[in-house]
Amino acid sequence: MQQKTTDELITQEMLLKIPYRWAAGEHIGEFLRELRRSGKIYANKCPKCGRFRCPPAPVCSRCHTKMEEREKWVHVGPKGTLLSFFVAEQSFLVPTTGDMLEVPFSVGVIWLDGAPVALWHQLEETNPDKIKVGMRVEAVFKPKEQRQANIFDILHFKAI
């Protein structure tokens, strides 16, 4: 006789908690230091094909040229145009903190004035009806004494 499979099944619950220290590196490091130092956003330009990168990159991914020359570093923004966005309305576990994401949480892809580069960053406005692709936005920086050379030195982008 076949025994009905109502037997208990064991599922074990566990928690992974691993610390890491990520070196931002030379180029992104200088980008972050400049946010703290002067409240400005750096991009750099490929000396061969002219493509810009923000945050600055050491090598052009299109033409594989080294982007080492300091004179090719330019300030972009703080104003820009919104190219695309999302608004998270459902929360999820943020793995870097272990907390649930505070929603609504909106993020935009901002085309910064001065070069064809875009930065992903948080938007102040969280009502999707009030956010439009093509709208003008501006970076809001933390006061200088609170800046820590990380991406949060830009508080968010707000509509102009």
Binding site: L9, E13, M14, L15, L16, K17, P19, Y20, A149
Partner: peptide, 18 residues
């Protein structure tokens, strides 16, 4: 220049069905 280090965690509850 001082190196910029981003400290962080990966905190992940998970389960395993045996």
């Amino acid at each position: 220049q001082e190196p910029i280090i981003t400290p962080g965690w990966i905190i992940m509850p998970y389960k395993y069905s045996v």
